[in-house]
Write a protein that binds this DNA or RNA. Structure first.
Ligand code: NAD
Ligand code: NAD
Lengths: 243, 243
DNA sequence: CGCGATTTGTGCACGACTTCACAAGCGCCT
DNA sequence: AGGCGCTTGTGAAGTCGTGCACAAATCGCG
């Protein structure tokens, strides 16, 4: 049969953000020997509502069988195709400091569709260092190496002061997706995607909820609330807070 | 004057997630000697739309002056109050491996409202190790130390296989907010908040957009699009993708 | 072959969030 | 004192995402 390549549907952003979760859960299920899975079971494993899961998957096309569920292997293929994981994408990591070292040594990188193709730093003392089979190159070498390795994704793990300059150099070298660990806003041309990870922001969001929980307890039971928030209920599922 | 404590408004979750960004931008502005800032300027510095910023801030109350802007110092105080950052919150870090080491040595932790109060690991070989002035304790000591240090926030940096068990122990020790770096879904009682950070998911989302950009270029210009996506426009602001 | 049990795919209503657009408020200058 | 320019705060409309509830589809079994 001829390999049919479905046109890329344009998925809601919220759905795209959840597909990787489903993919992880599916890989787990496959390893456990499951051939098919119901939306209910998969939703449980991924920590979402089953209706939401079905709607998400329906955007990819109809790959389930009513009365049975989804074929695990087929669904993995479909999601990996949509996410563009059929090719192992090359990633450049810039800034091999404290955090950069941990990232460079992270195995989960390789097992989930990516390949760290090069490490860069500006500190001459670090250039030449070997990490996990890769040698740290000077940031000035970025253009040639990015070209040679077809690098389209860059990870920034430098201090915030250097991040914008590094982003500019990445973009100039042809990178069109950036994952930024530095706590700052990056400015990039249209067509370049940026996502950020900021530990302190995550903690501050948690802090807000701590603050709220505390002030609710301090107050005498107001409004409809009669018991302590949270109470004693020890039911199963995760209480996701925010995105 | 008597310290007036405004009741905690219940903010939209999306607003809560942006307040830390505003806070970071405000600290920058304060360091640069700015006393006041307009919504337009602050929005630019935080990478958001100015209308959104004004609506977000309006949820905290009216702390701006029409025709002038916002008082930087006052706004910092307000946001820090709402986020519960007036006290320096104690954080426990569990799993002092590759990633845990980087986190333990991270300065941005301390400068943005938090204090790493204790490090834990299960590996006897690691227990006793000194990192950044802290000694690594055995995970079994968690209950007493969490109590003694009033720890309400826990960070999990163990392998995914251990994460659920660690989460259970954190909750048992009184922790009510968890930041999870392990790639797995955690199940916790009501009243406990969980946020996760998963590097691979971030990269896979970027990969999706790479895939889409590539397929758009491959296709002959369809629909309303006449030029290459992204084109040559090198305008300023960041193209945020997703959350 | 038909029936009941099961599970998907989706129409629909609702809620959350975003963005526009503008009146109201403030300070400055004349 | 009055007018003018600037900026906030917010109503209202639009967009996006969620979750219910159910019809349609499939399987297994008698
Ligand atoms: N360490 C953490 O756990 C952690 C957590 C969250 C966020 N961050 C953020 O990640 C970034 C890195 O943190 P870190 O602790 O690894 O810092 P670090 O100082 O240990 O490492 C930064 C590295 O970047 C290199 N560098 C500086 N300027 C450069 C440039 N122009 N080009 C290339 N390389 C350059 C430095 O030589 C250094 O090796 C910081 O922005 C930090 O705020 C770190
Ligand atoms: N290294 C990275 O850059 C990176 C990036 C993203 C996510 N992660 C995730 O973060 C987690 C940690 O990664 P890592 O590279 O640091 O792994 P690691 O193996 O280097 O470190 C894990 C540490 O956890 C400890 N540990 C194991 N079981 C424990 C338990 N029950 N209680 C307490 N401590 C226990 C181990 O002794 C070890 O020190 C993993 O889940 C990984 O997938 C890591």
């Amino acid at each position: 049969m001829s390999q049919q390549v479905p046109a890329l549907p344009d998925l809601p952003e919220a759905t795209v953000a959840r597909l990787p979760e489903y993919l992880r859960a599916l890989h787990h299920l496959a390893e456990s020997g499951n051939d098919t899975v119901s939306s209910e079971a998969l939703a449980g494993a991924a920590g979402v509502n089953s209706a939401k899961l079905r709607k998400d998957l329906s955007h990819l096309g109809s790959y389930g069988t009513r009365g049975v569920g989804y074929d695990v292997a087929l669904l993995i293929d479909q999601i990996e195709y949509v996410l563009g994981l059929t090719q192992r994408r090359a990633v450049a990591l810039v800034g091999v400091g404290n955090l950069g070292h941990a990232l460079a040594g992270y195995a989960g990188f390789g097992s989930r569709g990516f390949r760290i193709a090069a490490l860069f730093d500006a500190d001459p003392g670090r250039v030449g260092e070997h990490i996990n089979g890769l040698v740290v190159r000077h940031i000035d070498e970025l253009p040639e190496i990015a070209e040679a390795e077809s690098i389209a994704i860059g990870v920034i793990a430098t201090p915030a002061t250097a991040a914008q300059s590094v982003a500019d150099r990445l973009v100039a070298a042809g990178v069109t997706s950036i994952l930024n660990f530095a706590p700052c806003v990056l400015s990039v041309p249209d067509g370049v995607d940026v996502r950020k990870v900021d530990l302190a922001i995550e903690l501050q969001i948690l802090s807000f909820h701590e603050h709220r929980k505390a002030s609710l307890i301090a107050l005498p039971a107001a409004g409809g609330l009669t018991a302590l928030p949270g109470g004693l209920a020890a039911t199963g599922t995760e209480e996701a807070v925010g995105s």
